[in-house]
Design a binder for these strands. Structure first.
Lengths: 218, 218
DNA sequence: TTATATTTTTAGATTAATCTAAATAAAATA
DNA sequence: TATTTTATTTAGATTAATCTAAAAATATAA
């Protein structure tokens, strides 16, 4: 098994390489793990030694196959625990991240597979992020930012690209939680803000900044 | 908060001082934590510095009030997680110790109190050990070893003083799990083994060694 | 394309937890 | 009580993860 710390680096590298195909830089990792670049360099050598990453000095890193598997497994655990905390223990979606951050390092495949079954094999966590299955497969849904939608288009809120507690609480206040149906009623040219109808009832305006971080299935 | 390692030392000291009022020795702790005496001495200095233990060179240690609170809290977490694993995830009583050993270090009072409620505020773990309540109070039941019972006495199996997987599996095979009603039918003078009736049906003989580790409520 | 700025790595320390080997204290025994 | 044995502590190293400061490589701009 890998140490707690190694796991956090693998997860950080995985998240940083999501989307872009480029190698991840030392500074990006330092930022994400709240450490210094020098510490990251040390750890990169260690992870490269263990064949979890491809590392060329000054050129950044990518995960190897083994590295991706390890990272995906941690993410699977994190997201299943989040579902448990919300569905079974009654936590709110903005309260679960830090606890899941600890629980994700518990080492037992049996435990996590039984937890998966106990929860009914959920496909997404409380923020809409997909949960890898026990073979590591992730089913990505086609999601669109509200900020990329056109007037008249409709969809269902199904994810967020900003996971901070402040943002999640705001969405709750706005009535824009997962599953909410929206229709774009108007795009305000002046500041890019967006008017929309929520659940066929409420009319609301949200800033472009907020709209960029809400993901919708059309 | 205390480190993972500090917590394990506190727990070890707590368990070693259960029952006997004496101070706990360096070697006992080394044995229980699978470390060397020299390492223990180092850690004792640190825990004494933090006022979690009373430590006098060469005289062994006792926990301070703060130390006891910390230890009891870890034990509360361990036992609640064990209940979760057995009651909700379908683990057997001999499979949960190692996983709970990891889970007991997760730091969130809210989490553990919600888990407690989710489980219906159980008073004992799957091995019959009492679960401290959220204020740290432990309700000890009056338990008697089968080996201390007399012919004709009856009781209900309610705990074990040996927690190894081998022993627990044996009890299962013998039909001597928690809640089982027993009556002592005969004490064999030759080797101290004990004949008993299980659930008014089965007659069985168990060795003194086994009998010493089964605890009963009369 | 040279100079400047930024990023990354190296060198050398630090902290927590551990170890072995040696020294010292306490307990047991003769 | 003196001696031997056992338990405990100290001294000095080691490993993992981190840091600061300085050096080296790469990227950017003049």
């Amino acid at each position: 098994m890998h140490s707690f710390t190694e796991e956090n680096y693998l997860k950080a590298i995985y998240h940083l390489s999501e989307g872009n195909t480029m190698a991840v830089s030392t500074n990006q990792i330092a930022e994400m793990t709240s450490t210094k670049a020098a510490s990251v360099t040390d750890m990169l050598k260690k992870l490269a030694e263990k064949k979890l990453i491809n590392y060329i000095k000054y050129q950044g890193v990518t995960l190897t196959g083994t590295g991706v598997n390890a990272a995906v497994n941690i993410i699977r655990k994190h997201r299943l625990w989040e579902v448990f905390l919300v569905e079974k223990l009654g936590f709110k979606w903005d309260e679960v991240h830090d606890i899941a951050e600890e629980l994700e390092h518990i080492n037992s495949e049996t435990l996590i597979n039984r937890l998966d079954d106990f929860l009914g094999n959920p496909v997404a966590d409380p923020h809409g992020d997909p949960i890898p299955d026990r073979s590591g497969l992730i089913k990505h849904k086609k999601l669109v930012k509200i900020s990329d939608m056109q007037t008249g288009e409709s969809g269902t809120v199904s994810g967020v690209s900003e996971h901070s507690s402040v943002f999640l609480k705001l969405l709750e206040k706005l009535g824009l939680t997962l599953g909410t149906k929206i229709i774009i009623s108007e795009l305000i040219e002046f500041d890019g803000s967006i008017m929309l109808t929520i659940d066929q009832k409420t009319e609301r305006t949200i800033s472009r900044e907020v709209a960029k971080n809400i993901l919708v299935i059309l």
